[in-house]
Design a protein around this nucleic acid. Structure first.
Lengths: 233, 233
DNA sequence: AAAAGCAAACTGGTATGGTACAATAGTGTT
DNA sequence: AACACTATTGTACCATACCAGTTTGCTTTT
């Protein structure tokens, strides 16, 4: 965890309609995806509740949501653990994500509004302005791009599914932030996707998306070799 | 809810590694999908906990899981409600399910093992033996068919996504059990899907799957007209 | 020295009391 | 009669205590 907090000063309190449990869930989720919590690491309810000066109850609820997302596994009376990354699972998840996003981009190429294309171009432009080394900011805009793409054709449910899969894939990306594909290359791929959409060419758009998604995890085998402790088996 | 329970005799208790909260989740999930709990109906923690003679804690955890699956919505300090079915959401969910299952069946047509084909044929044969009117049993075998299909090509993650989507679609199916497509017709469609796989013809298998999934919700507009209270807006 | 047994220190699961907020019914006012 | 205000009820949320398994480490036994 990156931020400490002094005792007697609780890090989280219920603010507005956002419960402490939900805040904890979001916080822990980010920490796991970014690798700040190591795969295999034990996370007890008591430990987390003490760390953030809250009761076990909201911690427990956060764990339940994280378990639903396969980011932790809860073993009754034994412990809760950050799940290790599985190469097979990531490949399987990529397969599902690819077929969904390819279908989405094909729909977009056939009947998307010009204003939506502009919104996508704006996100790409923002990515180009991200300073070198600000990888987290880049990944946020990457998420915005894929979200906007799904929403542009009214596929909210598709995005919901993609979002869960993306979390698993992003865990790998954070492990390979440096030696991964250069950012400029990824921006270029985003542009080609929008080019295909704007040209009304579903085949070109689909090909661009496939290339993009496969390149994202191209470094997976090497990463798994370099970090045996964070991967399953 | 179908089953009553006498006071002082709790319906649920923690048995083995399955917690009360998990049992409640499964029970309520089935009840919602089958329409035994009406869309829009309020479900308070206290009410459910009293009904099953358990504390509010496991009920609350069941609600959280149901909310993650979009089967209930929790409004803080206001109540928890069974979500109404949305025609747009069902269509959106079907879109995602179609692209996934079409991709799965294409993979299967290209390299599936003969023993897996036999397993699929066995499920279809079992469906043919289901007595007329035993719709729940038929739907269980329908789920087994689609699960076995995904597992036959090692796409466990794909099935996990399909499972969630299927819940939304099954809510509609339970509403239209009688006037829906005849069961014999659906069995025939399953057979054609396996025919395409066995013939090693990805195009035929994909077409059969598309036809099948679109027919499943063909009755959606009519059902929405007949049950305005259970649908959104 | 090795193994068996036992006790203490964990773990997550459950029950219950209290809190803040929202909705509502009722009362008083205009 | 219509409206403002108040008290009551009901909700999900949080905190805390207790429970039942699991693990761990020490002690005892062989």
């Amino acid at each position: 965890m990156e931020q400490e907090n002094t005792p007697f000063e609780r890090a989280f309190r219920q603010v507005g309609p956002v419960s402490i449990g939900t805040q904890l869930y979001r916080h822990l989720r980010e920490a796991i995806i970014r690798g700040e919590l190591s795969p295999g690491q034990a996370l007890s309810e008591a430990e987390i509740s003490k760390k953030y000066s809250v009761s076990r109850q909201p911690v427990r609820e956060a764990f339940i949501k994280l378990a639903e997302e396969r980011l932790v596994t809860v073993l009754p009376q034994r412990g809760t653990f950050v799940v290790k990354i599985s190469v097979a699972d990531v490949l399987d998840a990529r397969f599902v994500r690819e077929v969904i996003e390819v279908a989405v981009v094909q729909e977009a190429a056939m009947h998307v509004l010009p204003e939506k294309i502009k919104a996508l171009r704006d996100i790409i432009a923002a990515q180009a302005r991200v300073p070198h080394g600000q990888n987290e900011q880049f990944l946020e805009l990457d998420e915005a791009f894929h979200r906007e793409l799904a929403y542009s054709v009214g596929r909210a449910h598709a995005w919901r599914v993609i979002e869960g899969i993306k979390a698993q894939m992003d865990r790998v990306r954070y492990l390979s932030l440096d030696d991964a594909t250069p950012i400029t290359h990824l921006i270029e791929q985003h542009s080609r996707i929008v080019d295909g959409i704007e040209a009304g060419d579903p085949v070109a758009a689909a090909d661009a998306m496939r290339t993009h998604l496969r390149e994202i995890i191209s470094s997976l085998p090497g990463i798994a070799e370099q970090n045996p402790e964070t991967f399953e088996q």
